[in-house]
Design a binder for these strands. Structure first.
Length: 410
DNA sequence: AAATTCGTCAACCGCTCTTCA
DNA sequence: GTGAAGAGCGGTTGACGAATT
């Protein structure tokens, strides 16, 4: 049965240049409003939804047209490895690109490359397994030199190799310390991690270097992943520390866990240090076991992060947590009750490097004592415009570089 | 040269979330 | 508190040009 009433027929399909003109003129004149009104008032026989889509994905003036740059490709792969198919969130971090564009690019281009890469790898591993079954050393394949290849390789857990891990270059650390580094490219939800553990050597400082600029607000992923690889230019950091006066021998023990976030608001890598792990409480023991476990690459998940739980601070432990922005230095943190003041010095080290040096000051050792222990208190820090407010196990972070909200410690 | 396959991308569809009365 | 409308998101479709057979 056919209706005799003339229904308002809405156009579908491709937009004509005339329709585009009408929409552009209307939007330039009136700005964005109710989309169903836009359709009517602009004289378009389209539904509001169609108008919105056309404007957002194609007509708005701030769109960047053309092919994706290599850097954009890397960024998309990086973000997708963390966010999955959350195209709008990925697009939000690529100025001038739309979610639709990125989605199409992913489905038509990157996905294919990944598949191809995976096929190659499967072939390689099949053939190598049949020929060498007992070789337990790290893969000896040379470091990849193509950025996209590196990103793709890192995206696929099965393809991760030593040279594809983030590592902190030139990271001297006390021989009594163990250092554990891991990248975070397997993050799906919160801060679970894919780990790479390392034992490092003296001296007793942890220097975190970056060939790019710490203070650069834009996200630039590292292009080279050699043994002295760069790390992302991170501008935000969650920093946790546990300090314990070990009983009997009056020896200080320090365990520190850092989670770093790049300027796109995503965790990019983490590092942990333990001092005098031999005397460790469970916290240090966990760290040590990972540091000594050659197979710890992918098994830790969120466990290290849990060290910062109040419950892990036993006895007279002091426990303090704060956020820093490495692009701003020096950094001083004060808890919101003004009972303690903890200073960390970040200085530039080396020509062409904007490095961050983390060390615990004498004052801090002397003053942290027990007063920062206990749960339920919030901490608030400020650092040249950056604030981090801790409440209900959530950090609200606001910085001049980016506005990150609700980062979680698990 | 025609037919077929492939790749790209704009647009649609259906669903969820948000806002507001 | 509730429902309707609008907005936004991700998956999918289909048109169209290029490449291949």
């Amino acid at each position: 049965m056919s209706s005799t009433e003339p229904k308002p027929k809405l156009r579908k399909g491709l937009w004509s240049p005339e329709e585009d003109d009408k929409l552009i003129n209307y939007m330039m004149k009136n700005g964005q409003g109710c989309w169903s009104d836009v359709a009517k008032q602009a004289g378009l026989q389209r539904c509001g939804k169609s108008c919105r889509l056309r404007w957002i994905n194609y007509l708005r003036p701030d769109l960047k047209r053309g092919a994706f740059s290599p850097h954009e490709e890397q960024l998309i792969i990086h973000l997708h490895s963390i966010l999955g198919n959350r195209w709008s969130q990925i697009a939000a971090r690529l100025p001038g690109r739309t979610d639709n564009e990125i989605k199409n690019f992913w489905n038509s281009c990157i996905k294919k490359k990944l598949k191809h890469l995976n096929n190659n790898n499967n072939h390689k591993s099949t053939t190598s397994n049949t020929s060498h079954s007992t070789n337990s050393t790290m893969p000896t394949t040379p470091a990849r030199t193509q950025p996209l290849d590196v990103m793709l390789a890192r995206y696929q857990p099965s393809l991760r190799t030593m040279e594809n891990q983030f590592c902190i270059p030139d990271l001297p650390i006390n021989s009594s310390m163990n250092c554990q580094l891991w990248n975070a490219y397997s993050i799906q939800d919160g801060f679970s991690h894919s780990l790479r553990s390392m034992n490092l050597q003296e001296p007793a400082q942890a220097r975190l270097c970056n060939q790019n600029s710490w203070s650069n607000n834009t996200t630039q992923l590292p292009l080279n992943y050699t043994s002295h690889a760069t790390i992302p230019p991170l501008v935000d950091c969650e920093f946790m520390s546990l300090k314990e006066n070990v009983k009997n021998d009056n020896q200080n023990e320090l365990m520190t866990t850092c989670n770093y976030h790049d300027s796109s608001g995503l965790s990019a890598w983490s590092a942990s240090y333990s001092h005098n792990a031999d005397n460790c409480d469970p916290v240090g023991s966990i760290l040590e076991s990972y540091a000594n476990d050659e197979n710890a690459t992918d098994q830790c998940n969120a466990q290290p992060i849990a060290w910062a739980n109040e419950a892990d601070c036993k006895g007279d432990d002091s426990c303090f947590r704060f956020n820093v922005n490495f692009g701003m230095q020096p950094f001083t943190a004060t808890d919101n009750s003004n009972r303690e003041k903890t200073s960390y010095e970040f200085g530039e080290v080396g020509e062409g490097y904007n490095c961050c040096e983390i060390k615990q000051s004498e004052e801090e050792e002397a003053t942290t004592g027990n007063s920062l222990g206990g749960g339920g208190e919030g901490f608030e820090f400020e650092c040249e415009g950056a604030t981090a407010v801790w409440h209900d196990n959530v950090y609200d972070i606001h910085t001049a570089a980016c506005d990150l909200d609700q980062m979680y410690f698990t």
